[in-house]
Amino acid sequence: MIDIQLIGLFNATLQAATLLFIAALGELITEKSGILNLGVEGMISVGAVTGFMTAVNTENIFLAVLVGVLSSSAFASIHALVTVVLKQDQTVSGLILTILGLALSSLLGKNYVGKKLVTKLEGVTSVTDPSSILEVLISQNIIFYLAVLLMFITSFVLKHTMFGRRLEAVGEDSRSSDSMGLKVAKTQFIATCVGGAFAGLSGVYLTLSYVPYWTDNMTSGRGWIALALVIFGGWKPYRTALGALLFGFLEALVPRLQTYGFELSPYIVKITPYVITILVLVILTIYKGGKTGAPKNIGVPFFRENR
């Protein structure tokens, strides 16, 4: 039944895309404020492991989501402290956040490897085996719908609210924003923590629903893909979502290829998303003539008295 397979592929695409999208959207918000956070991979891991641990110990799924989101956000505040308050190099700090996050999550999750979740994040409706596109759309778990909602909210807030315009202003030109009386440091700090919270949400989606168990390094590079998605999406929420769907599709396609009769090695297929990302980045850069939509002040620490 090719139809059932296609619907399965669609379902898997949505789920893989959700995971990538939430983290990318968080990074988008952080970067819009002028802070580059390369620690997405680490933040997702922290959110994933703390959420999973809470779920195993308390069997309270709501609390697990909350803990995952908050701990990841708190973890991101290390980056905010080092780069916003202490004005240190954003690239270094972000990279170390990834290394620290992966190590910390492995340490925390050591005793949880192989444990099963009693309650995982279930779909919002009772449909467990969707057999049509519609059923796929109505059978996702709450985080999926939250992601869709967050996409609209983020886009709206950035474009149409004073808070959003100010956030973007800070990322575009922190010096001018500062002279307009906008709070540069506070805005960037908040944006970094919000980015962390989103990464945490992505993390709990991973361990409470997508693959409901815990192993080391189970984020397997999704944080980095999320970073690439922000560039891919030209720092726009809707285009980032589109990119997430594309990458989600590729991730979902890999294990299914053989059932469609392709003789490609699954190992080679697995690297296609990364190859495509590079290609897309190159095409975007050529096509846009360097104007990729990146916030102008990204990566530049702000100190008011710098002359």
Partner: peptide, 24 residues
């Protein structure tokens, strides 16, 4: 309020945005 020697305008924003961003 101060006008600096170099412009303190956000180049990619509209005139209206630049004129209305400040809290005051």
């Amino acid at each position: 309020g101060m006008v600096h020697q170099e412009f303190r305008l956000i180049e990619s924003f509209s005139i209206q945005d630049n004129l209305t961003l400040s809290k005051s």
